[in-house]
Simulated scan of single mutants.
Amino acid sequence: MSTTNNVQIGMGRTSLKQKIDIYFAGLGMGLNPYGLRRARMGEIITLEMKSDAQLATMGLTRDDILPHVFRDLLTA
């Protein structure tokens, strides 16, 4: 029997992958976020696992997670 380490995290009806793709599409960034998503997925998952109260202590809401993780790409 083979085992795989496939983790699928869903955010309501939207998967985390879809949520990230939608985020970048909404910014109008013409790039494939695969590499960016892969490199930062650990941080995204860590933040998504926190409670709303823990995020608030950090000054974040759930909607702030992706802008926070990718903030270096969005500064001018």
Rank of each mutant, 00 (worst) to 15 (best):
M11W: 04
I45S: 08
D64F: 03
L66N: 06
A56H: 03
Q8H: 14
D72F: 02
S15H: 06
E48G: 02
R37F: 14
L60Q: 01
D72C: 01
L31T: 10
A25L: 15
Y34F: 10
M1T: 09
Q8G: 08
E48Q: 14
G26Q: 06
M11Y: 06
F70P: 04
L31V: 14
M29P: 00
G59Q: 05
G26D: 01
R38S: 11
Y23R: 01
T75C: 09
I9F: 00
A39R: 15
G35A: 09
K19H: 15
I44K: 00
L74F: 04
G42F: 07
Q8W: 05
I45F: 04
T75K: 13
T61S: 14
T3C: 10
I9N: 03
L55V: 02
G30R: 13
L31R: 08
S2T: 14
M49T: 15
A39T: 14
K17C: 09
I45Y: 04
G10W: 10
Q18R: 06
G30L: 12
F70T: 01
K50R: 13
H68Q: 10
I9G: 00
I22T: 13
Q18E: 11
L55Q: 02
R13G: 11
T3G: 08
S51I: 03
R38K: 15
M49D: 12
D63H: 01
Y34G: 12
T46I: 02
S2V: 13
G12Y: 01
Q18M: 05
V69E: 04
L55R: 02
M49K: 15
N32T: 12
S51F: 05
D72P: 04
T3A: 11
I22Q: 15
R71T: 12
Q8K: 11
D63Y: 01
L66G: 05
K17Q: 13
P33F: 05
I22M: 11
P33W: 05
S2N: 13
R37H: 12
G42S: 15
G35T: 12
L47F: 00
R37D: 08
R62D: 02
I44N: 02
I20F: 07
G12H: 01
S51G: 08
Q18A: 09
P67E: 01
A39F: 10
G35Y: 10
L47H: 01
F70K: 03
R62M: 03
P33C: 13
P67W: 04
I9L: 10
S51K: 08
L27M: 10
F24T: 09
D72V: 06
A39C: 10
L55Y: 03
M11V: 11
A76Q: 14
A56E: 07
A39Y: 09
R13F: 06
T14Q: 13
S15R: 07
M11S: 06
L27A: 06
T61I: 04
R38L: 09
G28Y: 04
N32Q: 09
L36D: 08
G28V: 04
Y34K: 14
R40P: 03
G28I: 05
Q18T: 08
V69H: 00
Q8P: 07
D63C: 00
D63G: 07
Y23Q: 01
D63V: 04
N6M: 13
L73R: 12
R62L: 00
T61L: 09
Q18W: 00
A25N: 13
I9W: 00
R38Q: 07
T14V: 12
L60P: 00
R38Y: 07
M1D: 08
I20C: 14
Y34R: 11
D21A: 10
N6Y: 07
R40L: 02
L55H: 00
Y23I: 01
